[in-house]
Amino acid sequence: MEKKLKSLFDYQKFESNPALQSVIDSVHRRYGARMLTDEELDLVTAAGAPEVGKKLPEADDKLK
């Protein structure tokens, strides 16, 4: 059964049967925020630590 499901879902990636795609999309909507792929996670990691909001040293601080 597992092999059959793997084959059918793999074929779905080629065939895009609308009825099955609708079921898949409904599952993905429920877990959307948690469906990041490895490639997307790599991009997040590559972006590095968020420094945007960090306060830059002011001229007065440097003089102290």
Partner: peptide
């Protein structure tokens, strides 16, 4: 088994 009909059966 790899046909659109089986995919619809799986969806159902």
């Amino acid at each position: 088994l790899l046909n659109s009909e089986t995919l619809t059966q799986l969806a159902n």
